[in-house]
Design a protein around this nucleic acid. Structure first.
Length: 350
DNA sequence: GGTCCACTGGAATCGCGGGCCG
DNA sequence: CGGCCCGCGATTCCAGTGGACC
């Protein structure tokens, strides 16, 4: 049933960006100086996850670079160090890719040298940066301007010191969840490109848009899962039970992708928590030690310390794979979705 | 109130893998 | 080639936290 799977990818950029006209205007005005070879204004975009902040910047940058000579870089900040951010910028700019062990200072010098005309750097998921250090380095570069994407603008701005406040000239705006009819338009456009015509009705699209409360990412994944369900059930078009069952599957799919992307240690901890049906910290460590020797054998890896496990547990929480409740010795870890299993750890016996 | 203690998370430090340079 | 230096994940150490129990 799915004619073009790429249409439902998270990274897919539609040809036309619907219902974001005001935001597109904001960006073009901020970047206007770059048309004349000057440094563009800095931009701060905020809004809840999944409403298209990244898509908006990617789309607008593509339009801009289509007719002006401006270099751009897109950095996913989550979990990156200062050096990691600078390295990522250099990676996106033309020129050679610096190797992993180039000192931070050298990276900054390379950046200074390479930026000779206007460059726009997108700092995506900027809430994930541990400090403003990376930003300090970037604003030192003449001709370089930033687009900061974050969830909570007040919290983010409060982290800036006086120097950064003076240096940055933020145009700030927020993106909100879409209205039901707006998101339905977006889903309709995707369906037109990715599905055979007539397999889903406008009413069904509106039902999806309503159920996901205007969050585009969830809506698009739900649409995809509805089509997959219809296919599995040999329906010639998407039926109401396909739509009804799509939401759970979409949520699960996102979690499964997250889990799959994590290293073995994380997946083992996750499975212990899931199979244990929720565990207290002491119990979790006990079980980890009980199975560790067996499970790690033949993997070329060794069990990790309690401290490292705690660091991995916060990562699992960050990815919403587990829920953490309570304080101190009463803290419990629970799997967000019992059905989401690790693909590399089947039949874990405890 | 006071003490106990399991657990958390910050900071310092270690060591491995890999590029660089004489 | 061998010594050097880097980043980064892992480890070690430890102060802080707050409920349990007296």
């Amino acid at each position: 049933m799915i004619a073009d799977p790429a249409v439902f990818d998270d990274e897919h950029l539609p040809r036309r960006l619907l219902h974001r006209e005001a935001a597109v205007d904001h960006l073009s005005r901020a970047w206007e100086p770059a048309l004349g070879g000057d440094r563009a204004h800095d931009v701060l975009i905020h809004g809840p996850p999944g409403v298209g902040k990244t898509a908006l910047t990617r789309h607008s940058l593509k339009k801009l670079t289509g007719h002006v000579d401006v270099q751009t870089a897109h950095v996913r900040c989550l979990g990156k160090t200062t050096a990691g951010v600078v390295r990522s910028v250099l990676h996106d700019l033309p020129g050679s890719d610096p190797s992993v062990n180039v000192p931070r200072e050298d990276l900054c010098i390379q950046l200074q040298e390479r930026v000779t005309s206007p460059v726009i750097v997108v700092l995506d998921e900027a809430d994930g940066l541990p400090s403003t250090d990376a930003l300090d380095r970037l604003v030192d570069v003449e001709n370089l301007s930033v687009v900061v994407i974050c969830h909570n603008p007040d919290e983010w701005l409060s982290r800036l010191d006086g120097r950064l406040r003076r240096r940055l000239s933020f145009t700030e705006f927020g993106l909100d969840r879409y209205h039901v009819d707006e998101l339905a338009d977006i889903l309709e456009a995707r369906a037109r490109r990715g599905l055979p015509s007539g397999v889903i009705t406008r009413e069904q699209l509106e039902a999806i848009a309503d159920k996901v409360a205007g969050v585009a990412r969830k809506g698009i994944q739900a649409l995809r899962q509805a089509a997959l369900l219809a296919e599995e059930r040999d329906h010639s078009e998407i039926e109401s039970d396909d739509v009804a069952d799509a939401f759970e599957r979409a949520k699960r799919y996102i979690l499964e992708q997250n889990l799959k992307s994590l290293p073995f240690h994380h997946q083992l901890l996750y499975e212990l928590i899931r199979v244990g049906g929720g565990l207290q910290a002491g119990e979790l460590h006990e079980r980890y030690e009980a199975v560790a020797d067996d499970v790690y054998r033949g993997r070329g890896q060794t069990p990790v310390s309690e401290r490292s496990r705690r660091l991995k547990l916060s990562k699992l929480e960050e990815y919403e794979l587990i829920k953490v409740e309570g304080v101190n010795r009463h803290r419990t870890y629970t799997a967000s979705d019992q059905e989401v299993e690790s693909p590399i750890l089947v039949n874990l016996t405890v």
